[in-house]
Design a protein around this nucleic acid. Structure first.
Lengths: 197, 197, 197, 197
DNA sequence: GATGAATGAGGATTCATTCAT
DNA sequence: TATGAATGAATCCTCATTCAT
C-alpha cells in the first residue's frame, strides 16, 4: 500500500466515522488526505469501493483478533466474553473506525448495501460457527446460533456507538460497558450445568 | 392528523424503511403520497423532521406496548422477554417502520444525528428504569442498567433488521428470532436465586 | 383603512425596510401583521402592489412635507435645504421607511420596476419644477434641473441609507448629515449674486 | 483569469446589470456564459461571491482611474469634477456594470448586504481621504468629508442609473449629466476664497 | 369576508465522476 | 501516474398565489 493509499484510507476512516457515508464527499477525503481527487479514483473505482475497503478492513481486524484468541485454545467462555469486548478494545486505538462500523449501512444504494450485508453476514456466520463449536463442546447452551451471533453483533455495535459520546452516560458505558457486555453475552449463552446438578 | 398528513407519513415510513434516509428524496415521498412537495413542507419544517416524527412515533408505539404490559402487573421476566420481542411483534403490522428503525439512525448529518440520539437515549432511559425496578424487586440481577438497555435495543434492532431479508437465514430469524432473543435477554439479566438453593 | 390593512402596511414597511423586497415573504408579513395570508390578498392583488402602495405612501409623505413648506412662502434656499433634510427628518419617526426607499428597486420584475421608476420620476419631476421656479425667481443658478433633481434624490437616498447603520460613521452621518447635505445642495444650486457684485 | 472565468464574469455583469441580483439565476448565468452550473461553483463559492467579485472589480476600476488622475498632479477641482463624471465615463465601455452598481446594492440578504456595504464604505472612505487632502491644500471648503463622499457616490449612482433608460429624460441626462454633475459637485465643495476678496 | 392548506415551478447548491493535460 | 477543471443531474427548500371551506 503506497503512502497515498494509506493517507486516503486514514482520511476516509476518520471522515466516514465522524460524518457518515453521505456526509463525506470525495473532495473532503481528498483534502484531508492531501491527495488529488483523481488520485482517489486512481486507486478505487468509486466512493462505494473506498467505503467497502475500509469496512472490510475493520471486519478483518476484528476477525483476526478473534482468530488469534481461538488459536490460543481458550475456553468458549473466554472467547464469547472477548468478542463482546472487541469493539471496546478497538475504541481506544481506532476510535474512528468504531463510529464507522456503528453507522447505518447506506440503504439507498442497492449495490453498496448488498456488499455490506454480505460482509456483515460473513462475520455473523463466523461467530455462529464459533458458537456451534462451543455447543458441541458443551460449554455453550443449545441455541439458534444465527440469532445469537447477530444479537452479539447488534448489542456491541449499539453500545459502543453510544459510548462514543461525551456525556455522562457515554462515559459510564466506556467504563462499565466492556465487562457488563461480556457478562451479558456469556450469561445469555452459557450452558447451565449447575442447574442440572 | 389530516388525510394528507397520514399519506405523507405512510409514504415516508415505507420509503425510508426501504431505501434509507439519504436514499429517499422529498420528491419521492411527495409522489408516493400523492401530495405536492409544498404540502410536505407545509406540515413538516424539513425532511429531517419528517424522519424524526416517524422515529418518535415508532418509539412511542413500543413504549406504549411496554407500558400496557407493565400495568397488567406482569413479572419482570415476562416484561424483559416481551421487550426483546417487541420489534418482531411490530414486524407484522409495521414491517416498513422496523426496517427504518433498524438501520437509519446514525446518518452523519450532525443535527439529525443529534436529534435521533436524543430520542434513542430517551427510550433507552425508559428501559433502564424498568430494569432498575426489576432489580429492586429482586428478579433482575444487579447490573449496569444503561449498558443492558442499550444492549437489548441493539440486539433486537440488528436481528430484526436482518430478519427483513428474503434469504434462508432471514426466514430462520423470523421463525426462531423472537423466542431466542427473549431467552437470550432473560438469561442475560435474570437473578439466579433458585439455582443456588 | 381598516385595522387589518394598517397592520399589514406597518408590518410590510418594517420588513421590506429591514430585509428588502426579496428578503420579505408574504407569509412573513402575514405573521408580523397577525393577519392571514388570504387577508393580504384580499386587500392587495399581489406582493408587488403591497410594495408599491407603501413606496407611494412614503413618496407622498415627502411630497406633502415639501408642499407644505412651499405654501409657507419660503425662499428657494430654505426649500432646497429642507428637501435635502427630509429623509433625515423621516429617520426619526419612520426609520423603517427610510431603509425601504433607500433600497434597490427590484430590477428583475419588469412591471414592478416600471411602476417604481415612474414613481421616482414623478417625484424627481416635482423637484425639477421647484428648481425651475427658483431659477425664474433668480435664487437658483441656471442649471439642468432634471440632473439636479436626481442628484439631490440620489445623495439623500445614499447618505440616509448609510446613516441607518450602527457604526461610528453612521452615527456621525446622523449628526452631521442633515446640515452638511443641506449646505452641499444649496451651495451646488445657489445663484452666486455676490460674485457678480 | 481563465477563459471560462472571463465568460462567467461577463455574463454575470450583463445579467445582474439588466435584471438585478435576484432577477438573475445561476442557471441563467451558466447558459449565457456557455458554462456548466458546476463550473461557476468551481470558481466562486456562491452566487453572492460572483456578485461581490464584480462589484469589487467595478469599484477597483473607478479607484484606479482616480488614482491615475491624482498621480498626474491635477488640482482638487479637476479631481472632484472627474470623480463626479466617473460613472458616466464608464457608461460607454461598461454599460452593464453601471446599471449593476446603480441599483443592486442593498439586497436584503443580510450577508450580501453586509459585504456590499463594506465595499461601498471602503470606496467612500477613499473619496473622503481625497477630500480631506483637498481641504488641507485649501481648495476644498471645510466640510464633513464622509457626508460629502457618500453624497457624491449617491448622486452619480442615481443619475447614471436613470440615464440608462431610453426615454427623453434619460437622453438629456446622458448629454447634460456629466458636466452638470461635475459642476454640482464642485460648487458644493469648493472653497470660496476669491468671492470674499 | 376570512382562513390556511395546497400547489408546483423555480432557486441555489452539492457532488460523484470524467478526462484533457 | 497525477491533476483538478468541468459536468449536469439531483437535492432540499421557498414562496407567490389559489381556492375550498
Amino acid at each position: 500500500m503506497t503512502d497515498a493509499e494509506q493517507r486516503i484510507i486514514d482520511a476516509a476512516v476518520s471522515l466516514f466515522g465522524e460524518r457518515g457515508y453521505h456526509g463525506t464527499s470525495i473532495r473532503a477525503i481528498s483534502e484531508a488526505a492531501r491527495v488529488s481527487v483523481g488520485a482517489i479514483y486512481h486507486h478505487y473505482p468509486s466512493k462505494e469501493d473506498v467505503f467497502i475497503a475500509i469496512v472490510r478492513r475493520e471486519f478483518d481486524r476484528r476477525r483476526r483478533v478473534i482468530e488469534e484468541l481461538r488459536t490460543q485454545g481458550l475456553s468458549p467462555e473466554t472467547l464469547v466474553r472477548e468478542i463482546a469486548r472487541i469493539h471496546f478494545a478497538m475504541l481506544e486505538d481506532h476510535r474512528d473506525s468504531v463510529g464507522l462500523l456503528g453507522q447505518a449501512l447506506p440503504a439507498g444504494m442497492v449495490s453498496l448495501r448488498g456488499k455490506l450485508l454480505a460482509l456483515e453476514r460473513e462475520f455473523a456466520g463466523y461467530l455462529a460457527e464459533l458458537l456451534e463449536e462451543g455447543i458441541r463442546v458443551g460449554d455453550v447452551r443449545s441455541c439458534h446460533t444465527w440469532t445469537a451471533a447477530y444479537a452479539i453483533l447488534g448489542m456491541t455495535k449499539v453500545v459502543t456507538a453510544r459510548a462514543l459520546g461525551e456525556d455522562a452516560v457515554a462515559q459510564e458505558l466506556r467504563v462499565r460497558g466492556p465487562d457488563e457486555l461480556a457478562e451479558f453475552a456469556w450469561r445469555a449463552l452459557c450452558a447451565v450445568k449447575e442447574e442440572r446438578s
